[in-house]
């Protein structure tokens, strides 16, 4: 079935060694300036001067640029085209196409927005590539996040591939009993109805069994929990987090100040 349940790539790198919370702060320390700072070239500079070097620093450039070409670039590109063509306004008309007008202003605006999205998705991608989900959860739990909360987050992250696998098993089973899932769209929607039952009901029964099973492993014990993973929080991490918080505040202030 699904051997890989996370995006995490195990490597030895400066980025891997950072504390998970520091990396999470870094994600927002990139996104906020990209969206808030009123200087036009901010997201572009962030992308070139921070995000791309970070991918190399984390030694995940290969995985990252694969994600860029397969996912981020198409999504940002689509957004760019839509906004460039459909956002009204602007004086410098560059081209006219039937009812669509392309102006320099809307082109610039769309470009910046696309790069903002690029920065946002990239930061999250780099975060997930270099942070093991268990590590993030252990760290957050030790900082006081309730265990139940952490469990829900991490179990949800794992449930999607599980559900996909189960859905395909059920579909295969129903199809072998003659269920039509391949003809016209309406018929296929109709055919999906009997699949919902087993998927939802099966999941409910499993939720109950799983609840007992984690109970059997002492999950609700009131003793203070320990963690298998050793998570470091070095002075560098603390310093970086403060710096990032300052950057976020500065972006917010710059936004309010200059508008």
């Amino acid at each position: 079935m699904h051997e890989r349940l996370s995006f995490y790539v195990k490597r030895e790198s400066a980025l891997h060694q950072l504390n998970p919370l520091t990396k999470l702060t870094l994600v927002f320390g990139l996104i906020l300036p990209a969206f808030l700072v009123p200087f036009y070239w901010t997201p572009h500079l962030l992308l070139l001067l921070v995000v791309f070097p970070l991918a190399f620093l984390g030694k995940v450039q290969g995985e990252y640029f694969t994600a860029v070409t397969k996912l981020i670039l198409p999504a940002a590109g689509f957004l760019f085209v839509m906004q460039a063509l459909f956002i009204p306004g602007g004086e410098t008309v560059l081209a006219k196409l039937w009812f669509l007008t392309l102006t320099q202003e809307s082109l610039m605006y769309a470009f910046a927005n696309a790069v903002r999205i690029f920065v946002m998705v990239s930061s999250f991608t780099l975060f997930m590539l270099t942070t093991h989900p268990s590590e993030l959860m252990s760290d957050l739990t030790q900082r006081g996040l309730p265990g139940q909360f952490a469990y829900v987050i991490i179990a949800t992250l794992q449930i999607i591939p599980q559900m996909q696998a189960k859905a395909s098993t059920i579909i295969a089973a129903q199809r072998s009993r003659g269920l039509d899932t391949e003809s016209s769209f309406a018929r296929r929607v109709q055919a999906l109805v009997p699949l919902v039952g087993p998927l939802v009901f099966g999941s409910l029964v499993e939720v109950e069994e799983r609840a007992i099973a984690i109970e059997a492993r002492g999950f609700t014990s009131r003793r203070p929990k320990t963690s298998l993973r050793e998570i470091y929080d070095r002075p560098l991490d603390k310093g970086l987090r403060w710096l990032l918080i300052l950057i976020m505040l500065a972006s917010l202030v710059s936004r309010i100040w200059f508008s």
Binding site: L5, S6, H132, P133, S134, M137, A150, Y151, I154, A155, Q158, I159, E206, E209, R210, A213, I214, A216, R217, G218, F219, S221, R223, P224, K225, T226, S227, L228, E230
Partner: peptide
């Protein structure tokens, strides 16, 4: 249905009960 659903490897999965009962890392 006994898999905790919160762990990524068999090692971590087996350790889950000990983490919950507060056993020190080296002993886990």
């Amino acid at each position: 249905n006994q898999i905790s659903g919160a762990k990524y490897t068999v090692f971590e999965e087996v350790a889950f009960g000990l983490e919950n009962s507060g056993v020190p890392r080296s002993e886990i």
